[in-house]
């Protein structure tokens, strides 16, 4: 039975990931003095979109159709390497963190190709902005993983977040907190949240992620949305795994509930942040990410000492 726990955890991630979008939106609605959409709105949306047909422009080619399923497969594969609280990942091997980062990169690559495939200036702008910022965010993510790897003495995500357990906090708790903070910045930029992107905007000229999905419809959008929800889960799992209460070995259901709670807290924090800050100027995004990179370098140096 114990061997099946990782699989159960995978199922929880697959089913609960879209809930986080609901949490963010409800928190934002709360701050705006509104009631907000139902928590399960993204499930309804995905269900509705899956029942729809898709329209394909004659100017688009094979990449445009291939990107949504291919991107989703990359994200699903990455999810297999993510441990879940007090339970291990489905798959792990030394160095798998590099694979995970590049699986996320491959999904982005699919999105960019599909966006460029449309020939639309809006999609092209969105793709170029995304490619530009990912240059920074990927580097920051690697630096964070390197710092975690030094602190835990492991080169696999499972080792850092599961096997090491509380030992990772014994090296230098304040420095590790900096890593958690930088990981949260990576979460925001990689998931196209405020202050880096505005998921609610209808203005094409300001879009990044939304611009790349403008010409997709029906099941393709459903796959994009679902992949985005899973990506949020994956990236939220990194700081959540670090912050997961040290030494706690609850039962299976307790663990799942606790882990879900930590991720939901991350989502709520994101909603609160989006409610009290404006979006950055586009030119300032690389500056912000450079500062995050500097922080993670400092953390790495202190941890490696």
């Amino acid at each position: 039975m114990n061997n099946l726990y990782p699989l159960f955890n995978l199922i929880i991630a697959l089913t609960a990931a879209p809930l986080m979008s609901g949490v963010i939106n409800r928190v934002k609605a709360f701050f705006a003095g509104r009631k907000g959409p139902p928590l399960l709105q993204l499930y309804f949306d995905i269900g509705k979109l899956l029942r729809k047909g898709a329209v394909y422009s004659r100017t688009t080619g094979v990449f445009f159709r291939l990107a949504p399923p291919a991107g989703l497969v990359f994200i699903l594969t990455a999810l297999l390497f993510i441990p879940c609280g007090a339970y291990p990942a489905v798959l792990f091997f030394p160095g798998d963190m590099v694979l995970v980062v590049y699986l996320l990169g491959a999904q982005r690559f699919c999105m960019l190709l599909a966006a460029l495939d449309t020939g639309s200036s809006f999609e092209g702008m969105g793709a170029s902005r995304d490619a530009h910022f990912s240059v920074f965010s990927e580097a920051v993510l690697f630096l964070c993983l390197a710092a975690m790897s030094v602190a835990s003495g492991s080169v696999s995500l499972n080792g850092m977040l599961f096997t090491a357990g509380g030992r990772i906090w014994q090296v230098s708790p304040p420095v590790l907190l900096v890593v958690v903070f930088v990981l949260y910045i990576v979460l925001l930029v990689e998931n196209y949240r405020v202050p880096f992107d505005d998921p609610n905007t209808h203005l094409e000229l300001t879009m990044i992620h939304e611009a790349m999905a403008l010409d997709h419809g029906g099941p393709d959008i459903a796959m994009f949305e679902y992949a985005a929800a899973l990506k949020f889960w994956i990236l939220a799992s990194l700081p959540a795994g670090l912050l997961f209460p040290y030494g706690m070995k609850p039962d299976f259901f307790g663990n799942s509930a606790l882990f879900l709670g930590v991720i939901a807290l991350t989502a709520a924090l994101t909603g609160a942040l989006e409610s009290c800050a404006a979006r950055l100027r586009l030119v300032k995004v690389p500056q912000m990410l450079t500062a995050a990179a500097a922080l993670s370098v400092v953390a790495l140096i202190f941890l490696a000492k």
């Binding site: 701050f31 705006a32 003095g33 505005d198 905007t201 989006e274 009290c276």
Partner: peptide
């Protein structure tokens, strides 16, 4: 709203 600052936008 255009700078994604919600409180003023909604009120």
């Amino acid at each position: 709203g255009d700078v994604a600052y919600l409180p003023t936008a909604s009120y």
